[in-house]
């Protein structure tokens, strides 16, 4: 094919579909990202009436969509080779594997194992067999007691 690298460079664009995109392609993407940002703030300001999970889900969904637009359009993964796409998504596909760590904390709530019960309010993720009046996410855990955060001197 190419007899000199410079000629190869001239071919390289055509070979990989790195056609120069029209300006509107980038401006449209930028507009989508801006709208996404405004929507996120709007969802934050809107009163969802005590179901804050909705607001969380909306904020994260928009964040993922925005991330998708950045990766796909700005980072040119749309035009990348299969290999490029593979490595572009490898990290994002592998993060859920890391997130499996969280499963442990979900399981702990169902554990009937008093022998592993740690005591004290500072236990980050208490087992369920804790006394009944303590619920980890109740308003009681927001206390106004001014406890010293450092029990001992550093």
């Amino acid at each position: 094919m190419a007899s000199s690298p410079l000629q190869a460079a001239a071919h390289a664009h055509g070979d990989h579909g790195h056609h120069v995109q029209p300006l509107s392609f980038y401006f449209k993407t930028g507009a989508v990202l801006t709208v996404g940002m405004i929507l996120t703030i709007a969802a934050y300001k809107y009163n969802w009436g005590g179901t804050y999970i909705i607001a969380n889900v909306i904020a994260l969904t928009i964040a993922f969509v925005k991330a998708g637009f950045v990766v796909w359009n700005f980072m040119h993964v749309k035009f990348a080779s299969t290999l490029g796409k593979m490595f572009a998504f490898l990290g994002f596909l592998w993060l859920p594997v890391l997130m499996v760590i969280l499963v442990d904390y979900g399981f702990r709530n169902h554990e009937q194992s008093p022998s592993f019960q740690l005591n004290g309010e500072e236990t980050a993720f208490p087992r369920q067999l804790k006394s009944k009046d303590h619920q980890p996410n109740s308003p009681n855990s927001v206390n106004t007691q001014n406890r010293t955060p450092y029990g001992r001197a550093f």
Binding site: Q21, Y26, T29, L33
Partner: peptide
């Protein structure tokens, strides 16, 4: 976001 757009345009 604007800087990202600038960067994409710079690559173009």
């Amino acid at each position: 976001l604007v800087s990202s757009l600038f960067m994409a345009l710079a690559v173009r």
